[in-house]
Amino acid sequence: MGTLDGRVAIITGAGRGIGREHALLFAREGAAVVVNDLGGANDGTGSDAGPAQQVVDEIVAAGGKAVANTDNVADWAGAEALVTQAVREFGRLDILVNNAGILRDSFIAGMEESQWDAVIAVHLKGHAATLHHAAAYWKAQSKAGEPVQASVINTASASGTFMPNAGQGNYGAAKAGIAALTLVAADELERYGVRVNAIAPIARTRLTLATPGMGALFAAEVPEGEFDAFAPANISPLVARLAAADSKLTGKVYAVQGGAISELINWHGGETIESDGPWTVDDLAERLG
C-alpha cells in the first residue's frame, strides 16, 4: 500500500530536478502521474518533449502509471488542456503540484520588461492558471455531490519569503505572490474539499546552480556515503505527505531543505506606535527615525 494509492496527480515542471523527484516518488507511492514539462531552457526559451517523456518511461518501466504533457502552464488554454488530459487519461484529478519555473535574473535598474514578464508568467500566472482549472473541476464535482479530497501544493521560494536575493526582483516577487495565492486559495477552496499548501524548497537544480552567488554552494561535492543536504529528492516526501488523502493540513507554507522543515508564518504585526491624534511628519521622524 502506498500513501497515494488510487490518486491522480498533475506535476508541472516534472521533467527535471525537484519536479522529476516528485513524479518518481508519487508513482512509487501509487499515484497515476501526468508529467508536465515544456522542456525549455533555464530562461524558458525553446521546448523539448524529451524530459517529460523520459520520466514517464522510467515510471512505466518500474510498473507505475504516467503520461507526458508538454502544455505551457503560463497559457490559460494550455493549463486547461493539462487538467482535461488528467481527467481523460485517468478518470479523475486529486492532486495538483505546481512546480514549473524559469529564471531571468537581473538587477532592477537594468531589468528589461521581457525579463519581468516571462518570470511572472511562468511562475505566478502558471500557478494561477492550473489552479483555476483544477479548482473549477473540483467545484463542479462538489456541487454534483461527489466527494472531493483534493490537494494542491504550490512552489514558493526562500527568495520570495525569508531570504530575499539580490538580482531576483522578478523571481522573488512571483514567489511571494505564490505564497499569498496559496493562503487565499486555501481559504476559498476548503468548502469544496480542497486543501492548498506551499513549499519553499532549497535544493540542487539547474536553476539554483545558475543563480549568481549560490551556484558554488550547490555544486560542492558530497563525500560518498554522506547525506546530501541539497539533493532534490529530499524535498519530495513532504510534498507526498501534503498530497495524501488523509492529511488535514491546509494554508501552510513550509521551508524545506535537506533534513529540515520549517513552517513559514505570513506577514504579522511587529512593534506598534500610536498617537492620540493625527500624525505629523515631525512626530514620525522622532518615533520612527
Rank of each mutant, 00 (worst) to 15 (best):
I153D: 05
I153L: 13
I153V: 15
I153C: 14
I153A: 12
I153Y: 11
N154Q: 13
T155K: 06
T155M: 05
A156L: 08
S157W: 13
S157K: 07
S157N: 13
S157L: 11
A158V: 14
A158Y: 10
A158M: 15
S159I: 13
S159C: 14
G160K: 12
G160S: 01
G160C: 11
G160N: 00
G160F: 02
T161P: 06
T161C: 08
T161V: 13
T161S: 05
F162K: 14
F162N: 06
F162Q: 14
F162I: 09
F162C: 03
M163H: 11
M163T: 04
M163G: 01
P164C: 03
P164E: 05
P164K: 12
P164V: 07
P164R: 12
P164Q: 06
N165E: 03
N165C: 02
N165F: 00
N165K: 01
N165I: 00
N165W: 04
A166P: 09
G167A: 00
G167D: 12
G167L: 10
Q168M: 07
Q168P: 00
Q168A: 06
G169K: 05
G169T: 02
G169L: 00
G169V: 05
G169N: 00
N170L: 07
N170K: 02
N170A: 05
N170G: 14
Y171L: 11
Y171H: 08
Y171F: 03
Y171S: 10
G172E: 01
G172C: 05
G172T: 05
A173N: 02
A173M: 03
A173T: 08
A173F: 11
A174I: 12
A174H: 08
A174E: 05
A174M: 10
K175A: 13
K175P: 10
K175Y: 08
K175T: 06
K175S: 02
K175L: 01
A176L: 05
A176V: 10
A176F: 07
A176D: 01
G177Q: 01
G177E: 03
G177T: 06
G177S: 15
I178L: 08
I178H: 09
I178P: 01
I178V: 02
A179L: 11
A179R: 03
A179H: 11
A179W: 00
A180G: 07
A180C: 12
A180I: 11
A180H: 13
L181N: 04
L181T: 09
T182I: 07
T182Y: 03
L183R: 15
L183A: 07
V184C: 14
V184K: 00
A185K: 05
A185Y: 05
A185T: 07
A186L: 07
A186T: 13
